[in-house]
Each structure stands twice: as C-alpha cells, then as structure tokens.
Design a protein around this nucleic acid. Structure first.
Length: 191
DNA sequence: TGGATGATCGCA
DNA sequence: GCGATCATCCAG
C-alpha cells in the first residue's frame, strides 16, 4: 500500500510517528535505493520557533504551506541536504524531517555515493541519507510517485512500530519540545 | 571540538 | 547589500 497525499493531510504530530516503519524508495538514473524509516522529527508552524515556517512563508519555506505529501528538500551548512514531507491541509504549515533509514535495497549504490561500506553509516542522519539516496534541491516540492525515470515513493508499514519520543536534535531554539520520534529497537538511528 | 561551506533571511 | 545563522558531518 503506497502512501499518498491523503496520509499527510492531518496533524504533523500524528503523521510523524505513523511514518516510522514505512519504506522510502528513490529511483534515479543510477538505480533505485530504499530504506525503512526509523527516525523522524516534526516541524510545525508559528508555535514552533525551530520550524522554517515559524515566521510565515518565505521563498524557501513556502512549500511547507502548500499541499500535503510534497517533498521539502533544503540545503544547509553549505554542504548538506535534508528531506521532509509536507503535512497538514494546504495553507497550514507543517513537515516531517526524515532523520534516519535502515538501508533495505541499493546498498551498493548508497555506499558508492557515501564513500563508505559501513551499512550503519549509510543513512543514520538527515544529511547522510540524502547523500546516499542522491537527493538535492532538484527534489524539492515534488509529489509522491509522479512520472519519469526519477521518482520518490513511500510504502506503508504492515508492522506496528514500537517508538519513543525525545527532544529534536541539532537545534538551539524550542529544544525542549519532544518532537523527535524513533524506532526503539533500531540500530540505524542518528546521534 | 571545531572547521568546512554557501543558501537563506531579517534588517539596514 | 550585509552579516549572523544554520533541522550537519567528519577529521583530529
């Protein structure tokens, strides 16, 4: 069962834990890679100072105010990309940051892109997984599925994932909010 | 523990 | 325009 925009058209804090266990597929000219989502973070609107949407829409954050299910990919620290999926109804900002994956397929390609053979180091961080999957700004504001030889897909989980919450990592404001969700038993987490 | 490295955004 | 900031990663 593939996840569609409908899955994301609800409160961000409900979508975030439900994404745990889902499988993310990224198809490119080089091949297809996939991984099981084991760690995410929720970013809200004006009540969340750490969110790019906290001060209203900007050229970058406008995607977060758009229709649910769209990708939100941004460039940070001069060298890394981060992948989110937009949540909430159109007009209401929200997104879920994908922080870590358990590699499932395309490990050879991911290892080549990452420059390491260590399976545990391929996707255990938001920047790492974008590098492993070949994601950059060209993947921003895309719909799930779509057409052509490059596409991004999400397959729902059949299992019930046991997860925990914690404060989000790598932020200095709103650092107390417990908006990080992670698979308790996974050994592919970031941090 | 700090340096790389450049887009983004608020304010001038 | 300008400079502070940044949802990170890696070497040392």
């Amino acid at each position: 069962m593939m996840l569609t925009a409908e899955f994301f058209a609800r409160p961000t804090l409900e979508v975030a834990p439900d994404l745990l266990g889902a499988t993310l597929f990224v198809e490119t000219d080089e091949g297809t890679c996939s991984g099981r989502i084991v760690e995410v973070e929720a970013y809200l609107g004006e009540d969340d100072a750490a969110s790019h949407a906290a001060r209203g829409p900007t050229p970058r954050s406008a995607v977060m105010f758009g229709p649910p299910g769209q990708t939100y990919v941004y460039f940070i620290y001069g060298m890394h990309h981060c992948l989110n999926f937009v949540t909430e109804m159109e007009g209401t900002p929200g997104a879920v940051l994908i922080r870590a994956l358990e590699p499932v397929s395309g490990l050879e390609l991911m290892a080549q892109r990452r420059g390491t053979e260590r399976e545990v180091d391929l996707c255990n961080g938001p920047g790492k997984l974008c590098q492993a999957l070949g994601l950059d700004l060209g993947w921003n504001d895309l719909s799930l599925g779509g057409q052509g030889n490059t596409q991004i897909l999400l397959k729902a989980s059949k299992e019930l994932v046991k997860y925990e919450r914690s404060p989000r990592l790598g932020i200095k404001v709103a650092a107390d909010l417990p908006y990080r969700f992670f698979d308790v038993g996974s050994s592919f987490l970031s941090g």
